[in-house]
Design a protein around this nucleic acid. Sequence first.
DNA 1: GCGTTGTGTTTTGTATGCAGTTTACATCTC
DNA 2: GAGATGTAAACTGCATACAAAACACAACGC
Lengths: 241, 241
Amino acid sequence: MTESVTIASAAGNVTSLAERRLLHEEVMDRLRDMIVQGELLPGTKLNERVLCERLGISRTPLREALKFLASEGLVELLPNRGAQVAPLKSAKVKEMFVVLGSLEALAGELVCRNASDADIAEIRALHYQMVAHHARGELAQYFRYNQQIHIKLVECAGNATLTQIYRGLNANVKRARYMANLSKSRWDRAVEEHEDMLDALVRRDAPRLQAILRDHLANKLVLVMEALNVNEPPINTDKRR
Amino acid sequence: MTESVTIASAAGNVTSLAERRLLHEEVMDRLRDMIVQGELLPGTKLNERVLCERLGISRTPLREALKFLASEGLVELLPNRGAQVAPLKSAKVKEMFVVLGSLEALAGELVCRNASDADIAEIRALHYQMVAHHARGELAQYFRYNQQIHIKLVECAGNATLTQIYRGLNANVKRARYMANLSKSRWDRAVEEHEDMLDALVRRDAPRLQAILRDHLANKLVLVMEALNVNEPPINTDKRR
DNA sequence: GCGTTGTGTTTTGTATGCAGTTTACATCTC
DNA sequence: GAGATGTAAACTGCATACAAAACACAACGC
């Protein structure tokens, strides 16, 4: 099957007037999407030749892209044995949630202090978009806006370093979401939490926003862990000493 | 001058019995050291051909190493115009300190909960090594153990994700340390803070440890900013296209 | 039958070649 | 002399070629 549009041809259309993007960047974005969206599942072996053919490029930019994704934690490099989509071990995911929690708390504090009224208006707009999709039961679209809200919240904290690290971790965790199935009651509850979040943000009530973010994340962790435990062998790697 | 030992030959000695390391990894570590140690100063242009000759390798592994360092933030990639050692803008450094603060606070909490007694003994040993070098006025060695203590503290928190992110940010900030000149009184104070830190850790007093870490980092920021303001022109927002 | 060794194939790691872009610099114009 | 324009050199980006390692599997020995 050669139905896939190669990056080379796809990029060609845009190149003309806009700033030329580098091939390995295109590849990186493309692969990241494929991994995050679940098109390439955790543990999948990434054969260079196959991927090159599929993306219509040579090995050099592909390998460069893989290096980037490896340092983002989405890909694992096995010396002399190629690359694979990083497995989603529950222990690792827990770790990431702990760090994410700390970063979201920081973002909550900063955003209350630094966000402009326009920023908050923007977040509110995204929020109502999300609520609309929730009302219509459109899960995929709901997720989309949900993600956008969280990203936007962190961005409005005005710390590019924070944003970058958050995005990386978030992309990694996001992969698990596609396995989780959200019950109606939990979905409703998540939306309620978002309502509270928006309220706290509008009032710029940092402590309350942080508390809500913390709870929200904790609930998310429960969901993700349930999803992972289904796919992961019961042999628990619980190494508390 | 061709006095530099190439990576190829240097690696050759070790390769025989131990696990073979990949060239681009060697290069990465080597370059990272050169950047962090201040051998390659912020803003330095990294010419591929020159670096290849200096390290005795071809362009492919060098470019792969640069990609990795770029995502760590130590190197900046300018499309079609090569790479340079990432400049140390004071705004960026401030950002990184804010995030580092949040991460160290997290580490402080986790380490009090998760560290084994052996871990703490290890940190104590490092501490006394550091104090000894302080007593002898050996700044370089002092820095070495200082760094090791902070890294070890984070490691003992038992969260590999946290460690990885911390290392990346820390390496970036560390570059500025080599510009800072530490006055006697400030040095003494830093050591005192470390004494308190150890005490709080031994008692596993998380809130107090966090407070000390926060102050310690704030003092470090002051030092770094002073060093940067000397080297950074006051009106520096020159955006070359 | 099971494990071991050897060989051919596949795949990864590194070097090199080629094309397009940027940069440096000399020439020309005002 | 300052700025604009054109051309040559240098450098980067990508593709490909070559070398070395890993893998698959068959033949062999126990």
